[in-house]
Simulated scan of single mutants.
Amino acid sequence: MTYAAHHVLTLLAALSAMAGMLRSRLPWRAPRTSLLIWQAIGLTLVLSVVGVALALGLAPYRLGIVPALAAFARDLAGGGLPGALTPFHLLLTACGIAVAGWVLAAFARSARSVAALRRRQRALLGLIARPHPEFAGALVVEHPAVAAYCVPGRRAAIVVSTGSLGLLTRCELRAVLAHERAHARERHDLVILPFAALHRALPASRHVRAMLDAVALLVEMRADDRAARDDGHLILATALRRFRTCDHLVSPPGTLAATEIGAGGDLDARIDRLSAPVPASTPVRVLLLAIAVTVVSTPISLFLLPV
């Protein structure tokens, strides 16, 4: 079996794992572990696509991709490429490098644009928001529609509208704020960023969009779990039910909102899960982690080791 065939197999394994994760509700039982699996799947998809092109292009070196790239760079700088490297090999190598550069550039653009959005949001909040008199760290904006969201970052901001204050009881408001603080503490924005960047690189791909939506929903479920530790599952579920029946203020781009309806924020699924929680058993968590390690380790090893 050739080196490239190994990468094709890892690509097929990642696609199969992605299809299984999208069809099953088992990931909802362990959101944090499932997020690790999605990160492994996303990394494997990119590495495998790049790996197929580079493995074929650099095949004459008979090395792992990273050592072969280093040898290729030395030969290119010295002006003496091996005679076994045909124009076809050079084209495939260029394609592999271009795809890797394209994805990295999309990641950099996404990170830069999101950071700029959040700077503007914090500046705006400094002008229009006021601290909540009871809940430290929460900011209140005057608006009749309901909204609650987190502006992530090193200086995270938790924001609620006056419409939310009039809608929720004290316990429900505390649960919603705990949900948003979970986003800030666990830096869920960094979890979503690579998938958002991949979607930016491949905006027409339905599979990439489905993967981004699944990750966004798991992020919300993970924050639900953190909030429910202190305030209980039913209190947060009741708060979400109240949000679902009201007019919503659309959260600003780049934020994480507990009450967002649509892609990645399926309130019905979250409410059902909170109303009848089924914690994942240790064997399930071990199985999910084993899948993640297996999916991500194979392409990485193929980049480093000759086959």
Score class of each variant (00 low, 15 high):
His7Glu: 14
His7Tyr: 13
Val8Tyr: 11
Leu9Gly: 09
Leu12Ile: 07
Leu15Val: 14
Met18Val: 03
Leu22Gln: 07
Arg23Leu: 07
Pro27Gln: 13
Arg29Lys: 05
Ala30Ile: 03
Ala30Ser: 12
Pro31Glu: 11
Pro31Lys: 01
Thr33Lys: 04
Ile37Thr: 14
Ile37Glu: 14
Ile37Pro: 00
Trp38Tyr: 13
Gln39Lys: 03
Gln39Cys: 08
Leu43His: 02
Ala53Lys: 06
Leu54Tyr: 08
Ala55Phe: 11
Tyr61Asp: 09
Arg62Leu: 12
Val66Leu: 11
Ala68Met: 03
Arg74Gln: 07
Arg74Thr: 04
Arg74Ile: 00
Gly78Ile: 11
Pro87Val: 06
Phe88Ser: 04
Leu92Pro: 05
Cys95Phe: 14
Gly101Leu: 14
Ala105Glu: 15
Ser110His: 08
Ala111Ser: 07
Val114Tyr: 00
Ala115Phe: 05
Arg118Asn: 15
Arg119Ala: 14
Gln121Gly: 15
Ala123Cys: 01
Ala123Arg: 13
Leu125Ile: 10
Gly126Ala: 00
Leu127Pro: 00
Ala147Ser: 15
Pro152Asp: 03
Arg154Ile: 00
Leu165Ile: 06
Gly166Thr: 03
Leu168Glu: 04
Thr169Asp: 10
Cys171Asp: 11
Cys171Lys: 03
Arg174Trp: 05
His179Phe: 07
Arg181Asp: 00
Ala182Thr: 01
Ala182Glu: 10
Ala182Cys: 07
Arg185Lys: 04
Glu186Gly: 03
Glu186Met: 06
Asp189Cys: 01
Leu190Gln: 03
Pro194Lys: 11
Phe195Lys: 02
Ala197Ile: 00
Leu198Lys: 02
Leu198Ile: 03
Ala201Glu: 08
Ala201Trp: 07
Leu202His: 09
Arg206Asn: 14
His207Pro: 00
His207Ile: 10
Met211His: 12
Leu212Asp: 12
Asp213Gln: 04
Ala214His: 13
Val215Asp: 09
Val219Leu: 15
Glu220Ser: 00
Ala223Gln: 09
Ala228Gly: 10
Arg229Phe: 09
Asp231Met: 06
Leu236Trp: 06
Leu236Lys: 03
Thr238Trp: 09
Thr238Ser: 14
Arg242His: 15
Thr245Asp: 15
Leu249Trp: 10
Val250Asp: 14
Pro252Arg: 13
Leu256Thr: 01
Gly262Gln: 15
Gly264Asn: 04
Asp266Val: 02
Ile271Cys: 05
Asp272Asn: 02
Arg273Gly: 01
Leu274Lys: 02
Ser275Glu: 15
Ala280Cys: 09
Ala280Gly: 11
Ser281Phe: 13
Val284Leu: 14
Arg285Cys: 08
Arg285Tyr: 08
Leu288Trp: 04
Leu289His: 15
Val293Leu: 12
Thr294Leu: 15
Ser297Asp: 02
Ser297Lys: 01
Ser301Asp: 04
Leu304His: 10
